[in-house]
């Protein structure tokens, strides 16, 4: 009899605790659900905040990095002397490897018509170091810029590059608009620069 009583008491406590835990779980769920959406989020670089520090190449969990240089052809000047392709101070404009800025030789230079050249990024080779981006932004139109390639990115819960990005250029973006390609995406859309 005494044993039954003890078991009854224990069962009663258990049931009460279970109810309380269930209730608090529901509470947390509802409170979080207020801030929930069905949209999925991906990481992306705001090209107007990016300062081309070079950490995208070194701090991604993948090697080589899921960050690649992309070319927004719409705003490219097709320059012969491309600040993103040539090292500063180069005078003979040919495709000699020692004259190229890109350490991975990932930029292809193609003659279109006098005096215009097209520059194509080979994403297989690109390591996302942003050296060309820096050159292009300093001397050209800034048509070369970094983007996270979602076919490579494993979409970590917290992007390890975002954590070390000095200019907070990497943020979560809705999966319906996963890229910020310059041209389509302007500084006005970019939170701070357009403020």
């Amino acid at each position: 009899m005494a044993r039954d009583k003890e078991y009854n008491r224990r069962e009663f406590i258990n049931r009460g605790a279970r109810f309380t835990l269930g209730l608090s779980l529901a509470g947390v769920g509802v409170a979080a659900a207020v801030n929930a959406g069905s949209e999925k989020y991906l990481w992306q670089i705001d090209p107007f905040k990016c300062t081309q520090c070079g950490r995208c190449a070194t701090d991604c969990v993948l090697s080589p990095s899921a960050v690649k240089c992309v070319h927004a052809y719409d705003i490219c000047g097709y320059c012969d002397l491309c600040g993103g392709y040539f090292k500063p101070g180069v005078t003979d404009l040919d495709t000699g490897a020692e004259k190229q800025l890109c350490p991975a030789a990932a930029i292809e230079r193609k003659f279109i018509e006098e005096p215009y050249f097209e520059y194509i990024i080979d994403e297989e080779l690109c390591i996302g170091c942003a050296k060309c981006v820096k050159g292009c932004s300093a001397f050209g139109n800034g048509s070369l810029h970094l983007q996270i390639r979602h076919d490579i990115c494993v979409n970590c819960n917290e992007c390890s590059i975002a954590r070390v990005c000095p200019s907070d250029a990497i943020s979560r973006v809705p999966a319906s608009e996963p890229y910020m390609i310059k041209g389509d995406f302007t500084a006005n859309e970019s939170g701070e620069a357009g403020a």
Partner: peptide, 18 residues
């Protein structure tokens, strides 16, 4: 530039998430 040789500008690709 305005091209005269009929150059077609490639599109910037935006690959779908994995």
């Amino acid at each position: 530039p305005e091209f005269e040789s009929g150059y077609e500008q490639p599109n910037t690709t935006t690959p779908e998430p994995r």
